[in-house]
């Protein structure tokens, strides 16, 4: 008789039907409620209140004023015409970042996984090489690359040794954005490569043997065999990368500080800045922006659940 047997027998005796299931999920529900649902409710309270007081009871109710201020624009294509221009700069930059980063991330992860899946020497070594950046803290990643990319950094020193002119990589809008995308891919690609590699290794060998017997060319074999069978893993990677890209903040904030100007200011930086880094902290505005971000993330999560649902 183990420790749990007696209380479980008691629960079974008094809770009939499906109600015993609640006993099993209660611990998880408590943690989830405390650390996920409760913060969402608190966030909602902040989003509909104003002022700069921290305690909800001291904050005046303002209804949807925070959302209205965030969404007020004369021309939605020009953030500078919006009441909260930095919010819209954040949205546009985040959208551009998501498209570029996720596109290249999934493509490069797939190419790397295919390369690492081939039999060859030092395969384990190269798998480790691609995975190690995932183990680094985002701040460390950003500091390493800042050291490389700054005006008097390693990259410009290398260019100088080759007789080429140095460049302010982080002071030009285009190059700063490019390096933000690049550094983010470098830091996270190993994780997605690992998922795809597992997916590749789960594909049965006999399918490839059948394709080989039919003398299927490599490209056709990839399109007709590998890609369809890898699709579930690929979709997981795509949706996880999308969610992570929408939440981008830490690495880029340390690398560029959101600059030059607002060219690498993303949505989460706007939330942080508005809620925690101004002299007059606008908790309500930050909460409203974070709810809008949560809506986007929820849509992506629903998408993930739909695409990963087993088909009949």
């Amino acid at each position: 008789m183990n420790l749990l047997e007696a209380p479980m027998r008691l629960a079974q005796k008094h809770l009939r039907g499906g109600r015993i299931g609640w006993v099993f999920v209660t611990p998880n529900l408590s943690v989830f409620g405390l650390f996920t649902f409760l913060p969402i409710v608190i966030d909602l309270i902040y989003a509909v209140t104003g002022g700069n007081q921290l305690f909800p009871a001291q904050r005046p109710y303002v209804g949807t004023a925070n959302f209205q201020a965030l969404l007020a624009c004369r021309n939605y294509l020009d953030p500078n015409t919006c009441t909260r221009d930095l919010f819209w700069h954040g949205i546009y930059n985040t959208a551009e970042f998501v498209v570029l980063q996720v596109g290249f991330m999934v493509g490069l992860s797939l190419a790397t996984a295919l390369a690492l899946n081939r039999p060859g020497r030092a395969r384990g070594f190269f798998r480790a090489v691609f995975f190690y950046p995932v183990l680094l803290s985002p701040v460390v990643v950003a500091l390493i690359w800042k050291w490389v990319l700054q005006r008097y950094g390693v990259l410009n020193a290398g260019l100088g040794a080759l007789g080429l002119a140095p460049h302010d990589w982080l002071l030009n809008s285009s190059t700063a954005f490019f390096w933000s995308v690049f550094v983010s891919i470098w830091a996270h690609m190993g994780f997605y490569t690992l998922i795809l590699l597992a997916g590749l290794q789960a594909i049965p060998r006999d399918v490839y043997e059948a394709a080989a017997m039919d003398a299927t060319p490599p490209w056709r074999r990839f399109r007709r065999v590998t890609l369809p069978l890898l699709m579930p893993s690929l979709l997981v990677v795509l949706v996880l990368a999308l969610i992570r890209a929408v939440q981008i903040f830490d690495e880029v904030y340390v690398l560029t500080g959101g600059g030059p100007g607002t060219s690498t200011t993303f949505l989460v930086q706007f939330i942080y800045q508005t809620g925690f880094a101004q002299q007059v902290r606008e908790y309500g505005m930050a909460a409203a922006a974070s709810l809008l971000l949560a809506a986007v993330l929820m849509a992506l999560t629903v998408l993930q659940l739909r695409v990963t649902r087993p088909r009949k």
Partner: peptide, 9 residues
């Protein structure tokens, strides 16, 4: 230029 333009805030 990098001191003032290099970061958003």
């Amino acid at each position: 230029k990098s001191t003032w333009a290099g970061q958003a805030t």
